[in-house]
């Protein structure tokens, strides 16, 4: 086999945090003709929600002496996102390039990520966020679990390693339970799980000068590009459009309060504000 993908030590636990690079909306470019946005242009930043899987992985590092590997699929600015994760305390970065994946192909990216995980010297858990700015990103965790045939821990919190398995809190529907499971797991991490740590100034410096990010392509990974292309073609996407600002019309009620309350109350109920019962 080709040289080892990562420097990680196979004798120590290894956990992976997956991040997704999303455009920084401050720099969005919009085609004035079509109103569509150019997603390849803007700077990408580590989305706050993507700090969650990194934080979850770092907590495993703190508790179980694991090494943390950060992975991202090649998109502009992905290196910056990985550096930010490294500055929080992750040990190493992997930047996967496929050429075939485009922003809509969450399943294809999940495939690439899953295959990479398979190539690692070892892996005890994979953490991935449930939401970034990108709508389909929330499929990546479930998909990786299915591809690897690993345990899926939805909405995982306080996940720790033990005896080659994991334990912690998982979401069963809307309920939270304590679980344990043998074997490695893919953990999806909600945006409200932790207060992620801030990268310190020391961390920022080390991320750029002492940590390595390896760039790998399909050949390095021994992956068939056609397979990814097929996955990628399962969904198609058209038109990233900017949601136009709604022109606000104020509707004024000067009726007696009981009358207006009845109309407004019905409307609030219809719009679903009374919640899930």
């Amino acid at each position: 086999m080709s040289p080892p993908l990562v420097k990680a030590d196979a004798r120590r636990p290894l956990v992976v945090a997956i991040i997704n690079q999303v455009p920084d909306l401050t720099y969005l470019r919009i085609d004035p003709g079509t109103g569509e946005i150019d997603l390849d242009e803007p700077d990408r930043v580590l989305h706050p929600n993507d700090r969650q899987p990194v934080e979850s992985a770092l907590r495993v590092k703190d508790a179980d002496d694991a090494q943390v590997l950060v992975m991202a699929v090649d998109r502009q600015g992905a290196e910056e996102g990985i550096r930010e994760a490294l500055s929080m305390g992750a040990d190493e970065g992997l930047l996967l390039s496929s050429g075939a994946t485009r922003h809509s192909d969450a399943l294809a990216r999940a495939n690439l990520l899953a295959h990479t995980v398979r190539h690692l010297p070892r892996c005890d858990a994979v953490f991935v966020g449930t939401e970034t700015m990108e709508p389909d990103w929330s499929t990546v965790g479930g998909a990786i679990a299915a591809i690897l045939d690993w345990n899926l821990v939805p909405g995982g919190r306080e996940v720790r390693l033990k005896d080659g398995g994991t334990h912690g809190v998982a979401m069963y529907g809307a309920a939270f339970v304590r679980y344990k499971a043998a074997g490695p797991a893919v953990v999806t991490v909600r945006p409200d799980t932790h207060k992620p740590r801030w990268p310190t100034t020391w961390g920022v410096r080390d991320a750029y000068r002492d940590r390595t990010i390896q760039a790998l392509n399909l050949t390095d990974l021994e992956i068939d590009g056609r397979m990814l292309a097929r996955m990628a073609s399962l969904t198609e996407t058209r038109g990233q459009r900017v949601v136009r600002e709604r022109k606000k019309e104020t509707e004024t009620f000067t009726d007696p309060p009981e009358v207006s309350a009845r109309v407004i109350g019905k409307r609030l109920a219809r719009d679903g504000y009374l919640g899930g019962f």
Binding site: L107, A110, P135, S138, G142, A145, L152, A174, T188
Partner: peptide, 23 residues
């Protein structure tokens, strides 16, 4: 759409060899 169902739907899609769209 919720955390649980997103993961479930994605896993199901991969198992059934189909696509999945969320949110």
């Amino acid at each position: 759409q919720n955390t649980f169902n997103d993961a479930l739907a994605a896993r199901l899609a991969v198992t059934l060899d189909t696509g999945c769209v969320t949110r």
